[in-house]
Design a protein around this nucleic acid. Sequence first.
DNA 1: CTTCTAAAGGAACTACAGTTTCATTAACAT
DNA 2: ATGTTAATGAAACTGTAGTTCCTTTAGAAG
Lengths: 203, 203
Amino acid sequence: MSEPIGAPGTARPGGRTARVREAVLRAAGDALVDNGLGGVDLAEVARRAGVGKTTVYRRWGTVPGLVADMLAEMAESSLPRADTGSLDADLAALAALNVATLTDERQGPLFKAVIAAATWDEPTAVALRGFYRARIAEWAPCVDLGIERGDVPEGTDAAEVIRAVSAPLYYRLLVSGDPLDADTGKRAAAAAAAAARLGAFVT
Amino acid sequence: MSEPIGAPGTARPGGRTARVREAVLRAAGDALVDNGLGGVDLAEVARRAGVGKTTVYRRWGTVPGLVADMLAEMAESSLPRADTGSLDADLAALAALNVATLTDERQGPLFKAVIAAATWDEPTAVALRGFYRARIAEWAPCVDLGIERGDVPEGTDAAEVIRAVSAPLYYRLLVSGDPLDADTGKRAAAAAAAAARLGAFVT
DNA sequence: CTTCTAAAGGAACTACAGTTTCATTAACAT
DNA sequence: ATGTTAATGAAACTGTAGTTCCTTTAGAAG
């Protein structure tokens, strides 16, 4: 997250500052998983982290502020894309990875919370968009390779294909509440691949 | 929303009670659109509605409680499905309707808020799932008609096709933040129809 | 029209999330 | 090593979201 220059934690980011950040983000994640976004208060996070609540209020200020910083943390561990030699298998791998993340006991609630926070907090929304732009860019080459192979028509919007794989999974997680399992992932990948092959994502 | 029996508003739902509910839900919608889910407090809603804040706290208690009741209200105006005689056109109509709703100045933020609230409030989540189950059931016959016509293979999961149309739109609204316009809708409908025709949604 | 009481309203109260102040600790530069 | 000061932490403080209590209003039933 881009804090205003001069914000606490920017001039001496080593040692204690880093340890405090780590402890607070970890505690915030725990609180988020346990209580959901609406049930988090910063004083409790501070207590869990073994840190003065003044510090938490000073450095993050609000729950969405904290959430946005967690997202910055998550963004650093980018999932490397697959390269199996076939578009279907690559997309299936992407879907499987998404399913694994979203159904993970810890990461699932975290993603839910981040997305919920982004619906009303602009800095979180900006961070979220950046996060997914990076994720989509990481995986788009799968589709470009498919175009080179002649699997998929020229002019296909690679990003759109990647989005088409993930979308049904997030839709279930956030909106319809339908079950989300390995089979769902396979179907999402297969449907996206099929549509792409037919030129449904040609710009 | 199913309030516990004996809850205020159940024994004398006519006249004033109904007017109060209407005014409060309207004010809550305004507040939600203006300030987002995180910026709503019930006292302000009460003031906007010209209603005692005691009433709001007594009948709805929390912001998600209010949001869940708004959802119940929304559920009553169900969008009737199209029946154009072609699967592609029916799905395109569904997509267009979704785009119109989600980009509407008032309804868009409302849907965002409801979905966000559902990520941590279980009653809201239950109401939301019910809402979308009904929506999906309303539109599933489009696909069944397509199967009868021979457009789409036998055994295709109709609900899954409907979800495939909506999913990319919600994904953009909530997750990736990519633009959401008529063209996006058309592409989502076309991709779902294409995948369905190839049997990607056969159970 | 009268009665009964569910629901709304007003105002005082309370608890606690969030702030402010200032003393203490430890990063970084030299 | 030492000095400087960024960052943390403890405690006292404050504002206000949410509750409680009691009065008033107005639906429903006869």
